[in-house]
Amino acid sequence: MTRGRPGLAGPGLPAWGQAFPARLAEDVRRAAAFVPESRPGPAEPFRVVVTGESVDIPSRVYEEEPGECPGPGLTGTQRLILHCLYSRHHDGHVRQRHLEALLPAAEPWVVPYVIQQAGEYVREIQEAIRRGLPGIAVPHSPQRRLYGAFIVRNAEFFARTERRAVSYWACYHRAEYPVFGASPGGVLMAEFRAAATECAGTAWPRHTPRPVAAALTPPCAAAARPPSPGSRP
Rank of each mutant, 00 (worst) to 15 (best):
P70T: 09
P70Q: 04
P70K: 04
G71D: 03
G71K: 00
G73D: 11
L74N: 10
G76F: 04
T77W: 08
Q78S: 09
L80H: 13
C84E: 05
C84V: 00
S87I: 06
S87H: 04
R88D: 05
R88T: 01
H89W: 13
H90S: 08
D91P: 04
D91C: 06
G92A: 12
V94D: 08
Q96T: 00
H98K: 04
H98I: 03
L99T: 01
L99G: 04
A101T: 04
L102C: 00
L103P: 06
A105I: 01
E107L: 06
P108Y: 09
P108A: 04
W109Y: 02
V111Y: 05
V111A: 02
P112D: 03
Y113L: 01
Y113C: 01
Y113T: 01
Q116D: 10
Q117P: 02
Q117K: 09
Q117F: 01
Q117G: 04
Q117E: 10
A118W: 08
A118M: 13
G119C: 09
G119A: 10
E120F: 07
E120V: 01
E120D: 15
Y121F: 12
E124I: 12
I125D: 13
Q126C: 04
A128G: 15
A128W: 15
R130A: 15
R131W: 07
L133I: 05
L133S: 04
P134R: 12
P134Y: 11
P134W: 10
G135S: 13
G135M: 14
I136A: 15
A137V: 15
A137L: 14
V138T: 15
P139D: 06
P139F: 08
H140N: 04
S141M: 00
S141W: 01
P142V: 02
Q143T: 13
Q143D: 07
Q143H: 06
R145A: 03
G148N: 02
A149V: 07
A149M: 12
F150H: 15
N154C: 13
A155M: 05
F157S: 11
A159D: 13
R163Q: 15
R164S: 12
R164W: 09
A165P: 08
